[in-house]
Computed example of a mutant assay.
Amino acid sequence: MSAFSDYLENTLINATLRGATYTGGAVYVALFTTDPTDAGTGAELLDSAYVRQRAHTTVASDGFTVPANGVTSNARNIVFPAIVDGQVTVTHWALFDAQTAGNMLYHAPMLNEKTLDPTDVISFPIGSLSITLA
């Protein structure tokens, strides 16, 4: 189950109840070593090879499946580069609207925490990152 960030909660309230506009765009997957929390205060993975991965290929809409009953999931494999600096344990993932900095949109814990050693690659097969709005 995913959670909204504080940023996205406020943005959606403004867009749906206060007449503001919101235009989505690129979405990037980030990895965390602690809970990012709704406020985005967790520790994003630190490794010299780490970079957030774009969830889509050519257009933002191809990154996630068409929602059904408030649920969507990644529509393509997402593969991160191999870790190089040392062992690290990934506990959470999040979606951002930018490759660096930007606004966190959604976040969730890993179903199983993953300890990565140098040369290990972490990936998310199609359908494994699920966003549920309930």
Results as ranks from 00 to 15, higher is better:
V29S: 06
I122N: 06
P81K: 14
F96L: 08
G70A: 10
V66P: 03
H107P: 01
V88W: 03
V59W: 02
L46M: 08
T16I: 12
L111V: 11
T23W: 03
L95W: 01
Y50S: 11
R54K: 15
T65M: 09
T11H: 01
N69G: 13
V59I: 15
L133H: 03
F124M: 11
S61N: 11
T91A: 09
V66W: 01
G42F: 08
G86C: 09
V51Y: 08
N69T: 14
G24T: 11
G42C: 02
Y7K: 08
S73Q: 11
A108F: 00
G24V: 00
T119Q: 12
L8V: 09
L133V: 03
F96P: 02
L8H: 06
G127L: 12
T132G: 07
S73F: 08
A30L: 03
T100R: 05
S128H: 04
F80E: 10
T115N: 06
S61H: 07
L111W: 03
I131R: 10
F32Q: 13
K114L: 05
G40M: 09
D47A: 10
K114E: 08
K114W: 00
L116K: 06
E9V: 01
I131Q: 09
L105T: 06
Y7R: 07
E9A: 10
P109E: 09
D6S: 14
Q99K: 04
T65C: 08
R76S: 13
T34W: 07
P125F: 07
P125M: 08
D97F: 00
R76V: 06
T72M: 15
T132C: 02
D47F: 00
A134H: 04
A30K: 07
T91P: 03
H92F: 02
N77I: 06
V59H: 07
T33P: 04
A55P: 01
E113H: 05
F96T: 00
T72A: 15
I83L: 10
F4C: 11
G86F: 04
G70M: 14
Q87V: 10
P109F: 02
N77M: 09
S123M: 13
V71A: 15
V79H: 02
L45G: 07
T119G: 06
L111A: 11
T16G: 07
N69H: 03
R52W: 03
R52S: 06
V27Q: 14
D35E: 12
G19V: 04
A43C: 00
E9T: 10
T16E: 14
L133K: 04
T57V: 09
G40C: 13
A101S: 15
R54C: 09
V51K: 14
G63A: 08
H107D: 06
P81G: 13
T72W: 04
A26W: 01
G42E: 05
T11G: 03
L45H: 08
A94G: 12
T34C: 04
L129G: 00
A98P: 00
V71N: 13
F32W: 15
R54P: 00
A68M: 05
G86V: 05
A60W: 09
